[in-house]
Every structure is written in structure tokens, then in C-alpha cells.
Design a protein around this nucleic acid. Sequence first.
DNA 1: AATGAATGAGATTTCATTCAT
DNA 2: TATGAATGAAATCTCATTCAT
Lengths: 210, 210, 210, 210
Amino acid sequence: MNDLLFLNHHSQKIVMRTKEGNKEKDILEAAVKVFGEYGYHNSKIAKIAEVANVATGSVYVYYKNKEDILLQIFDFVWSRLYHDAEEIYKNANLSSIEKLDSLIDLIFDLFASNTPLTLVFVNEQNHLQKSVPQKFTPYYEKFFDCGEHIVIEGINSNVFTKTIDVKIFRNYIFGGIRLLLNKWANAPDEFPLNKIRRNVKYFLKNGIVT
Amino acid sequence: MNDLLFLNHHSQKIVMRTKEGNKEKDILEAAVKVFGEYGYHNSKIAKIAEVANVATGSVYVYYKNKEDILLQIFDFVWSRLYHDAEEIYKNANLSSIEKLDSLIDLIFDLFASNTPLTLVFVNEQNHLQKSVPQKFTPYYEKFFDCGEHIVIEGINSNVFTKTIDVKIFRNYIFGGIRLLLNKWANAPDEFPLNKIRRNVKYFLKNGIVT
Amino acid sequence: MNDLLFLNHHSQKIVMRTKEGNKEKDILEAAVKVFGEYGYHNSKIAKIAEVANVATGSVYVYYKNKEDILLQIFDFVWSRLYHDAEEIYKNANLSSIEKLDSLIDLIFDLFASNTPLTLVFVNEQNHLQKSVPQKFTPYYEKFFDCGEHIVIEGINSNVFTKTIDVKIFRNYIFGGIRLLLNKWANAPDEFPLNKIRRNVKYFLKNGIVT
Amino acid sequence: MNDLLFLNHHSQKIVMRTKEGNKEKDILEAAVKVFGEYGYHNSKIAKIAEVANVATGSVYVYYKNKEDILLQIFDFVWSRLYHDAEEIYKNANLSSIEKLDSLIDLIFDLFASNTPLTLVFVNEQNHLQKSVPQKFTPYYEKFFDCGEHIVIEGINSNVFTKTIDVKIFRNYIFGGIRLLLNKWANAPDEFPLNKIRRNVKYFLKNGIVT
DNA sequence: AATGAATGAGATTTCATTCAT
DNA sequence: TATGAATGAAATCTCATTCAT
């Protein structure tokens, strides 16, 4: 979560990096590491507290419960993705193809420097969508709507084919990217991010038939 | 899991369908239902036993532990996929494109009639690959190798482009299909399997640029 | 709870006293002791299990949670009181005064040999009526209705005075008895049960004015 | 607790009513409300602080711990009751019967305007007498001694019967009143205080036999 | 093989109390 | 005095697994 800003429960920006520390942020970052390493269900609150260098009880000062922590992580990620995606969508200087490429870049750029966050992102979303769908971040849908609009624009301007179903297409790409991010996070040397990025851009535009 | 054969721990075919029932198979099928509905971590052995109509303790007569049940499910699925994929691969009457299409069909055909199995397949594999990678079914790799060979064949015969990285391609497709199967299993009307199948075949061959 | 029968969750009589033991009953009796000694809120499930000579988890095999145990205790007591009270009420051979005296005896007889049960009875009912009133045993109201009917009978036959409000009277007596049972349970020598019993019968009939 | 004086830890009268407020008193009054509503064991210090409009930590500036707050409440109540009872006892103008009636009135008058205080009084005394008997307010015993003396006076002057045991009698009445106060506090319309008062005075003097 | 009662380790969560400011 | 973030001990409850029958 490096140099990124994010918002706490009261929508105040958490940017403090002073000596006194920022426990809310420390805990969230620790949770990302722990969830990333062990998976949500095998992660213990005590371990998160230990990694965050706070007492167990302190976790509950900032987060309602274990699930809430995961919820905040996804809220952070999808909010970022959505806001950046919207900017791309609104950018009149970009062609449909460029917008789609930028969208791909956006995702890879966000995760490029944060393996644990990637692991949480690719592995734990199902849990939340199953268990507390009503509380799941609204940015998720908004992001996809944004992507959909870009594709529809491209179809209307005859750059993209009419043949495809947009809803299916968006899930197809996202599923593909998600699994590739997973592979990268587990074996960065075998699956270098830039190679993945290049291939994905090619696949989705041209397919593989010569 | 209907009319499919599968193998027990001693690699004996389980086909018995006598009156007394086949508890090993009953338990596995019950587990698929329960894991599919609640997710692996929220599934209780007692619930699986109840659905299978056996006593809790009986589950441990046939399976070492909870994880082992999941392992057997994936072993069954990937074994099926691998064996069928190999047949396609070896079929001299098919072109590379036809083989690739058949591979897609293979997957969709397997899951078409079994929503719970689909849900387990798309949601719970990560768990096993994280937690017991060394025990994970060898058919998984074999299946993908098979798919890879088909693509390489196509590249060599100039039907498929050299531009792509085969390892990345295979994960890209599989990730896309996996997420789409998930969507279908949760909302079959919104995501009809045949529409998905048709779109996927188109995407992977042609991409979306006109 | 000595030689009394009581019913388990499935309304089966629990009378077994064999070597194999009867854990459901053991736990309930242990709970009476522990609740009686420490009070409900300061009683630990682990302590109850220890006293009952079972594992902590076994408590939850038979009881939904801590509150459920208390609920079963009160259900047992009030069911006993109600059923015995009804018999008295229906007994045509007794005068109204004799019925009232028998009602008093009934209560004292039930608790006479069981100090811990008395302590639970006099100290912990508030908790349940506050926290889970909807689940509280129906025998409680039924018992009091019974007592009320006896008093009304007496009023109608001019043995008891019209001056009183029956609902107030019933709570007055019961409150008085409850506190006296408490005193007895804590200091049986200072407050001998038979002396209490004799006094109570006198008070409620004659008052103290000469 | 309205216009009543009470004493702080150093036996100084707390009467200050300045703008800045009187936190010690605010906290005690808040505690009465919170204990009354939730019961002692389900009341949280943080909630008391919130109701008192002070910080959590401030509670510990004035009270040693949670139990101490309850102790102060009972000390306040029994001190009031004792001092007023003593006045009645010493009043040479009253007959024994009048004194007894005044004692009843005393109790009802104290609680008449303060439902939460009543609830604490009738529900939480057991807790203290069990858990910290050595620290329980001395006014409790003194109040009862006072009542006892009044009854003994009556017996000696032949107004009250010799038949009764005074210790038992005092607990009987007090138990009855306590339960009735409870009923009133929970359903003031069903159990109007004056009706209760009238009935209690009648019962204890005349009993119910015509 | 089949059972299901019994186990007990373990994890989440709560909250009275402390203490640095 | 006053604060309220931080603490961490403690307790309830869960449930995979065992084992005597």
C-alpha cells in the first residue's frame, strides 16, 4: 500500500507517517501481508496484530471484525481502480484502443509493487461476495461499468467488433488477468509482469489466429 | 458427478450402484454440494455427512480429513479433463483450431450439468494449491501441457501467431473461463453457458479489434 | 435435583443413573452448583464442565449456550411447581386456606433439600426475564395463574377479603418467600426453613396486628 | 437522584451545581440509568461515560472500578433510607402502626420518581452482597435494625402479635416490596405505585383471611 | 465397516482498566 | 483533572477429529 493514500472509516485521509505511528494504517497493511501469505481463513487476528506491532485488542478499535478488514482492503483497491478508470474513460484525447490499453496498464501498475496486495486481490474476493455481498464495495461495479462503456464506445465507432457480448467479454478479460496476476505474484520470474501485460493487450485485441 | 466413473484411494473404479449404496461416492457428492453452497471453509463435516446420509465418523473411514475430500474432487475433475484432452490432442483428424475449440467444449461440457461442482472448481482450487501444493493432482499440469502442445502445434503450422507466450496464453484463457463459469453458476440466466462458450471461442481466436 | 425426574430437549425423561452416566443431567446439575455459588455472570462454562466431569465442548452438545442452560433450569423448576400447584388447585377436598398453605409448602418442599438450586432460583430469574423474556418458561405464568385462582376462589367463598388486589398479593407473597429462601440458603441455621414456613403462613393469613 | 444530596468518597457533600458541572455526580446518575436499563453485568463503562458526557477515563478518576460505582449507589440509597427511618423511629408522636406505615411510605416515596434507581435497587443488590459483602454499606443493616425496633416496640405494647419472628418478618416484607417495585418499574400502568402501597399496608397488618 | 457422542485445542471478540499526554 | 487510545487477559463457542462400541 506503499505511497498510496487511503481513507479511514471517517473518510479522513490517512497520510500521517510520523513517529507516533498510524495504527489504523499499520493494521491494514499488516492484514494485507498476513491475508496474502496465509489466505483469509487461515489468518489469525493475533498474527495481524503482531505484524502491525499492536495489541490484539487494538485491531478492534479500528475494525469491526476480521471481515471488515478485508472489506476495507477491497474498498481501497476498487476505489482506486474505479477513480483512475473514470479518468481514462473521460479522456477525450485517447482512442478506444488506447483507453483499453490504459485500463490494462492501470491494473498492472496498481499491483506491480505490492505482491501481498495482489494475492489478497486475486484470492479473497469470492469470500466477500459470497458472505457479505450487500456490504461489498460499490466501486467494483462502477469500475466494470466504466470498462464496459469504453468497449461500447469502441463498438459504436467500429473499432471493436459487434460480435461479442460486452458483459461476457469484461469477465473474460478480468478473469484472465486475475489468474495471471496470481501466477506472477507466486512466481515473478517465471511470469514477468511486463511480459504478461504485453501478451494480454495482444490477446484481447487480436486473438491468436494468424 | 452423475454417471461418471471415478477412482477410489486404491485406484479401484467406483461403479458399484447397489442397494446398500456406495458411501465413498455418496460422501464425495455430498461434499461437492456442501462445498459448492457454503465454500470450503464454511462447510462442516457434519453437514456433509448429513447430506450423504451417513454418520459423521463414516466420513473419516473413506477420507483422511476435510482437505483430502477436496483433493479427491479436484483429482476427479482434472483427471477427467486431462484424459479427454489427451484424446483430442492425439486425434489426427482435427485441425489445431478444431482441437482448441474442442478443448473449450470439453470444459463447458463437463460442468454444464453440475452447478455445485462448478462452484467448487472455480472457487476452491486456490486453497489447495496454497495449502497442500505438493499433494495437488498431477492431472492439472498434464491437462495444461496437453493444451500447450495443441497451441504449439498450431504455431508450428502457422495457424496461430508466434507473437504470444504460450504459458501466459493458457493461464489467460483458463482464468477467463473460470470467472465466466463462476458467473454462470451464480446466474445461469444472465450468463447462458452456450453464449459464453461461443464468445470465448471467438475472443481467443480473433480478439475484439475489427 | 436429586431424585427428581426432568425432561431433556426432546422431552424424553432423563432418569438413567447407570454407570455410563448421563452427561446431559450431569451438566445441568453442575450448572446449578456453579451458578448457585458464583452467580450466572461469574460462572464459567469451563468450570461447569469441570464440575460435571466432561470436556468443555460437551456442554455444547447438550445446550445451545450458557443462557440455554439457565433456561432449562428454570423450565424444570417452574414446570414442577406448576404441575404440583395444579393438582392442589383441582383437589376438591381442600379448603381455600388449605390450598394456600399447600402452595407455600410446595415451594419450600421443592427447595428444602437443594441449596444451590434455591440460590439459582432466587438470584438469576431477573436475568432471563430481562434478556430472553420470549423464551422464558410458560410454566411460570401458569403457576401464578393457578395461585391466583385459588385466592379468587377463597374471595368468592368469603374466606379471603375482597379488599386486596390479587395480582399485587401474589407478587407480594412470592417476593417475600423468595428473599426468605435466599436468607435460608445463605444461613440455614439463622433462618430455619420450617420456622420461615410457619411464619409466612401466619403473616399472609393474619398480618401482624393483634 | 434529582435534588438529593449525597456524599463523595471523602464524605464531602456533593451539592455543587455550577456550569462546569459535577462529574462525580453526573457519572453516578449516568450509571443508575445504564445499570437500570441493561443490568449491571451488561453495562459498559464506556456507555456510562457517554451518558455522563465525560471521557471513559474520567470514570476512574472518581470511582475505583465498576463495582465501586454500584457500591456508591447502594450506599446512597440505604443511607437515605436509614436516616429517614431513624427519624421515624425516634418520633414520639407516632404509634407503632403509624411508624410501620411511614416506613412503607418512605420506601415508596424514595423510588416513586426514579424508575432507573428502582431497577438498580431491586435487581443488583444480590450481586454486591455476594461479591463484596465486606464492603457493602452499613446503612443496610442499620435500616433493618431500625425497622426491627419499631416492630418490637409494637409487640411490647401489644399492638403487634408475639407470634411472629421479627427477623423473618422484616425480610418477608422487604422481599414483597422489592418484587412489587420491580413490577411497577417495568409496568407502571399495570402496577400503580399507590395501589401497591395501599395493598402492602393492608397485607402486613391484616393478612387476607376475613 | 459404521456410528455419533465426546473431545479439547484454538480463535474471535469484548471490555474493564491503564497511562501517556 | 481529564482524556480516550491502547491494552491484553479472559471467556464463549466451534468443529475437525477420535474412539469405544
